[in-house]
Design a protein around this nucleic acid. Sequence first.
DNA 1: GTGGAAACGAGAGCAGCGCTCTCCCAACAT
DNA 2: ATGTTGGGAGAGCGCTGCTCTCGTTTCCAC
Lengths: 217, 217
Amino acid sequence: MRDIVRIGRSHLATEGAAALSLRAVARDLGVVSSAVYRYVGSRDELLTLLVVDGYDELGDAVDAALERVPRADHADRMRAIGRAVRAWALAEPATYALLFGSPVPGYSAPAERTTGPGTRVILRLVEVWEDAWAAGEITLPDGSVSPRRLSRDLARIRRELGLTAPDELVARGMLAWAALFGCVSFELFGQYGPDAFAEPKDIFEHHLEVLVAAVGL
Amino acid sequence: MRDIVRIGRSHLATEGAAALSLRAVARDLGVVSSAVYRYVGSRDELLTLLVVDGYDELGDAVDAALERVPRADHADRMRAIGRAVRAWALAEPATYALLFGSPVPGYSAPAERTTGPGTRVILRLVEVWEDAWAAGEITLPDGSVSPRRLSRDLARIRRELGLTAPDELVARGMLAWAALFGCVSFELFGQYGPDAFAEPKDIFEHHLEVLVAAVGL
DNA sequence: GTGGAAACGAGAGCAGCGCTCTCCCAACAT
DNA sequence: ATGTTGGGAGAGCGCTGCTCTCGTTTCCAC
């Protein structure tokens, strides 16, 4: 069982998500394909296991990075999260693609099993921003966001997460979040063009600074 | 031949990229599978055709949107591009996923056939920013970007595209570009969480404004 | 100890897939 | 009339996900 996930991960890393074959996993396990079905039920369920596994590993990577940054240095904490996401994505491109790339056709991860581990990164980010806001270190134009419909949605999100940060920060946080993953995806999937940057880390660091500033830090 | 691409597109829309089957296309075409191989050579080649097709359609959508905005209104031109990308992505989610999602395993689009149409959107964006810069409507902190290594890369990009805009604008433009697609991908692939927003267009508009400001417009 | 239940792997099999090969046939050129 | 070419048909190979049956092993209650 553990072995199935382990071998599945190695296949994911070497072959990619859609090429992940239950039969091949069984072969590597030295067992016939039907035996694997005792444990996983279907290829989609194996994918779900790998998705949860991936989210957890990414969450662990982010947590580990945060432990090395003083709690009061909010900007650096945000940078650490960004760098951890990028580093993990570069280390596990296939798993990253499974989590944040286009969904595998015909497969949609069951929300009840993936939303928990899947929200660890954004929750950490929200935590950083909320801390910074409480410490008075965020400078943003005040005034409520428009339209009111959006303001209502943001208020609900604030309430669900127990935040005191204002609408504008929540909204900009979501942008920073999406932008962060956009940058990582562009770099990883080669959208910048081949060899656009000798050292992609440089442009990422630049982008990270702009995003830190965009949330008022 | 044309029919193959047409049916391929409809399968892409209904079944998704990895479920795209040459045999199924042949069936819909009322022909045996081997007959299709006279025209496309392989499934990957069909994917390439669809990729080029998709880039072209997205490029057309962006161009059409730009035609309705006065050339001098640079901020609105940037907004129009963003909205056109989002609208097209929502209209053609499967094709968008094929172009900007995780790569289909074992398949990588041949650069020589996709880089041309694949760069239409970013070229349009660059055009807008360059125009705005030339018109003196961009306000950015001056000073060169660091490290020098990044500055060199950006200088090369500026030269290749014949730009007069400074490093900082080029770098921020790339961020805005990646962020735009990050936002669209997050919305399309449901990363925001289910039903986070009653009207996703609202948050997108907010993000778009932040990005317009981020490039100094 | 023994009998039954549960767990587990093997193997065959079905339908679908990408892709290749051979064959056949019609249209066209010489 | 003959040869060349283009294009579809069909069989076939090995792969896939998945299901079914069957035999074996293990373990637990009595």
